[in-house]
Design a protein around this nucleic acid. Structure first.
Length: 422
RNA sequence: GUGAGCGUAGCUCAGUUGGUUAGAGCACCUGGUUGUGGUCCAGGAAGUCGCGGGUUCGAGUCCCGUCGCCCGCCCCA
């Protein structure tokens, strides 16, 4: 590539959507919207620029390094939103007194993050956000997960293409407590466990030691990661009461009732970083494990309070467009037929242009999507273009048609022509 | 921040131990075909080989630098 061409490329990590690519993008976002609405969520939207202070309150000072932050001309500290959740929390907190809880909202939001790009990770993406605020029961988790899975299925994937791994931070806390880890070490232990598979176990042991976990208790921590089903968890808890366990079971039961049981697996290693989650957490992955998480989320109890609202529980989910598009491509599900459904009208010489235009106007008034030729074309060129652009129908008007008073509308698939008086 | 790979036509790429005017497929344009598109035939246009420097009689090829893309790691959604 020459230097000039490079300047024509979108900035690093950003995407342009040419019409061919936009078709898939629309299919994804249309499906998101349909699934969210089918599950009774109401759409909202918000400003793309958010106050930096709000983002810091939720994620800490370090986040400034990872986002597009800037000052406006009045020296206000602002940022392109890296995610939707702080904005949602702000909007809810701002009208907390008048909103009817529990609320079920969704947004399809473009979010920005300033960081290294890799497969499935750009500096900009669109994300479906599903949130239920003010409902303590696990029905909230169930509905949110079921709606997201519905979108995956509507996109053409099957229950064997992905797995939703589900766990609970509260349950993990109970398990650690039963394993003799004092509660003040739980947060650091979560962080250490989240590194499992990314760092060698010796490194994790070091982190645990730094966190104050006694070395004799560390074996218990690693045993926790060996848990693969809820029966083992029950054994480990030895009859201790665990509301978190009951909730996790109830969530799985609800999803099974929706017919999604086969796609749900318990996975104690799902932690989701140091985010604001307090209860159930979940992440969906492709079954082969080749890609990053397709969607993820969980319950947050402290979010609203952290932005200055009154404490209120919530469940949220984020579902990005990039990874699911990769997965659809892997499965050969990126095709779209929607181009077939339009009509193109062409004419041989400028003399037929008025009639062609009148015909286009008539068809448009009937609700058809009509492309009118911008200049005269030879029949061969016209039909070649109609075919290449995948029009469903094509009408070509020449002097003979005008003389005879009929125009033929050709079905481009069957090649049959249908006369129509002009 | 870090490591690898790749930059040759609009796209995907080939290009031998350095050797004349740098190739292919697809796409594009024109014609065969002044009333009909997926095939066919003929022809055509299109590349300062990412950029800069160096070695050499000679560099797409080797060396150094630089920019870009991309994959992984760190981190994270």
């Amino acid at each position: 590539m020459s230097g000039d061409k490079q300047s024509l490329a979108a900035p690093r990590g950003m995407r342009d959507f040419y019409p061919d690519e936009m078709a898939l993008q629309c299919r994804i976002t249309d499906t998101w919207r349909a699934s969210a609405e089918r599950y009774g969520f109401q759409r909202y939207d918000a400003c793309v620029v958010e106050s930096l202070d709000l983002l810091k309150r939720k994620a800490g000072e370090e986040i400034v390094e990872q986002i597009y932050a800037f000052k406006d001309k009045s020296d206000r500290d602002l940022a392109l939103r890296p995610e939707m959740t702080p904005t949602l929390a702000r909007m809810v907190a701002a009208r907390q007194g008048s909103l009817d809880l529990p609320l079920k909202w969704f947004a399809i939001a473009q979010c920005f993050r300033y960081e290294r790009t890799t497969r499935g990770r750009k500096r900009e993406h669109y994300q479906l956000n599903l949130d239920i605020i003010g409902e303590p029961a696990v029905t909230a988790e169930t509905e949110v997960i079921a709606a997201a899975v519905d979108a995956l299925l509507q996109l053409g994937l099957s229950l064997t293409d992905f797995r939703v791994r589900i766990s609970s931070r509260a349950l993990l806390g109970d398990i650690l407590a039963a394993s003799g880890i004092p509660i003040e070490h739980h947060a650091a232990t979560f962080l250490a466990l989240d590194k499992r598979g990314k760092l060698p176990d010796e490194k994790i042991a070091e982190l645990l030691t730094e966190a104050g976990v006694a070395s004799e208790a560390q074996g218990g921590v690693f045993d926790v990661l060996g848990l693969t089903d809820l029966d083992q968890v029950r054994d480990l808890l030895k009859g201790r009461a665990s509301a978190a366990l009951a909730e996790l079971e109830a969530c799985c039961t609800g999803l099974t009732a929706y017919g999604l049981g086969d796609a749900i697996v318990f996975d104690i290693s799902v932690i989701r970083g140091l985010a604001y989650y307090t209860g159930i957490v979940f992440e969906a992955f492709d079954t082969e494990g080749k890609l990053r998480a397709i969607f993820g989320g969980g319950r947050y109890d402290n979010l609203l309070a952290s932005v200055g609202g009154r404490p209120q529980t919530g469940v949220g989910l984020g579902f990005g467009d990039v990874v699911v598009a990769e997965l659809l491509a892997e499965r050969g599900l990126t095709g779209s037929d929607e181009a077939r459904g339009r009509i193109t009208v062409g004419f041989m010489t400028i003399d037929q242009q008025p009639i062609a235009r009148r015909m286009a106007a008539t068809l448009r008034s009937q609700g058809e999507q009509v492309d009118l030729a911008l200049h005269p074309e030879k029949p061969r060129a016209f039909f070649a273009r109609a075919d290449k652009r995948r029009f469903a129908k094509a009408a070509y008007i020449g002097p003979d048609d005008v003389t005879q008073g009929t125009v033929r509308i050709k079905n481009m698939v069957t090649r049959e022509e249908e006369p129509l008086p002009v």
